[in-house]
Design a protein around this nucleic acid. Structure first.
Length: 355
DNA sequence: CAACCGTGGAC
DNA sequence: TGTCCAAGGTT
């Protein structure tokens, strides 16, 4: 294995990075103190999500659930509602499971032992290192996409950062480079540098505080590194969305399964297009929901791109008589009460098109 | 390991 | 419009 750390002046790099971070770090809500719970919540929200997107969610979330115990006592539906629009909803469900464990096993105090933290649901290698270093000032690697990009360039590392095995290489490298005196500033400095200067496209090398140490900069490879293999493209699934409104103005909605895509979120009825021919939708609705259709109109279609799947939605609105067949997972809800339920974005769009 | 798991911003 | 990608984790 190559000893990448030997390619740079480690002491000078540490010093320059930390000095730059302490003079240039952004003012962010989760940087107001070192409350381990706030660090934790912020790190979960920031997974695969941009800072500007997270800020308003973080502020509202901490206001609503100020402590681990407060979150532990909340309903999962409440938590999902607070997470609505952020995506990757298993983050919210895992966080809720984890704080319950913190409340029951650790008296509501976020543990500071590595072994305890890493057992909590939703805390993987990155988040473990982030909490350990930022909240408890322990020298633990926190390797995210920023860190791999920055260090790829710094040490001229040509391994594919999309491969899981490669992350271990970077963790080993960070263990050599990390500051024992200020691991918090070191880890955050790497990420802040990646976000503000050493960006994926057109890195601002002229303003980089560590360009003197950067192997890619010296060989003009900053636009080639890091090496990252492409992910395969999404497959498309086509559905009818069936919006049923009864005579008292109630809408029929259903809760999604507890596993898989958009788990435990709510939606309007969905039907795979290949199941029923377009011309037979109306009789299908009358038969399945044991009702009579008074009005039927097709609304705007929606294309929604997920990380690994694409939905094409043909939205059909039905004004119906009272619905006699309502499954356990389904509910009739007054229009004015519908915003109490956590809806994923594509179904929020459906609702918007009703008005 | 590779696939699954959301959404919005940037270019 | 397409493509990448953003403070990843779980299975």
């Amino acid at each position: 294995m190559t000893d990448y750390a030997k390619r740079i002046d480690q002491d000078a790099f540490r010093r320059d990075l930390i000095n730059w971070f302490n003079n240039n770090k952004r003012t962010l809500p989760w940087r107001e103190d070192q409350d381990p719970y706030k660090v934790w919540v912020s790190e979960i929200m920031l997974q695969q999500t941009q800072v500007d997107t997270v800020i308003p969610y973080f502020n509202a979330f901490i206001r609503q659930f100020p402590t681990p115990s407060a979150l532990a006592d909340a309903d999962e539906q409440e938590v999902l509602k607070a997470w609505e629009g952020l995506g990757y909803y298993s983050r919210a469900r895992n966080l809720k499971t984890a704080v319950k464990e913190v409340k029951e096993s650790y008296g509501g105090v976020v543990p500071k032992e590595k072994q305890s933290l890493s057992k909590l649901k939703g805390i993987g290698p990155y988040t473990l290192g982030a909490i350990m270093s930022i909240a408890y000032n322990q020298p633990e690697p926190a390797v995210d996409g920023n860190v791999m990009r920055v260090l790829s360039r710094l040490c001229n590392i040509e391994e594919d950062i999309a491969k899981p095995k490669t992350k271990k290489t970077f963790e080993a490298l960070v263990r050599q480079l990390i500051s024992e005196q200020d691991p918090s500033s070191f880890n955050q400095g790497l990420m802040e540098l990646g976000a503000l200067i050493c960006r994926p496209q057109s890195p601002k090398c002229d303003r980089c505080p560590v360009k003197a140490h950067c192997q890619a900069f010296h060989s003009n490879k900053q636009n080639v590194l890091p090496i990252k293999s492409k992910k395969k493209k999404q497959s498309t699934h086509s559905y009818y969305v069936l919006v049923l409104e009864d005579q008292s103005g109630q809408l029929l909605i259903e809760k999604r399964p507890e596993n898989g895509l958009l788990a435990n979120m709510w939606q309007f009825m969905m039907l795979e297009k290949k199941e029923v021919d377009q011309a037979l939708i109306l009789p299908y609705v009358e038969e399945v929901y044991q009702t009579q259709v008074f009005e039927h109109k097709q609304l705007e279609s929606i294309k929604h791109v997920f990380s690994h799947v694409i939905w094409e939605l043909d939205v059909h609105y039905f004004k119906v008589e009272n619905i006699k067949h309502v499954e356990h997972s389904q509910m009739l809800v007054e229009k004015s009460k519908i915003d109490a339920f956590p809806f994923p974005v594509p179904h929020q769009k459906v609702y918007q098109y009703l008005n």
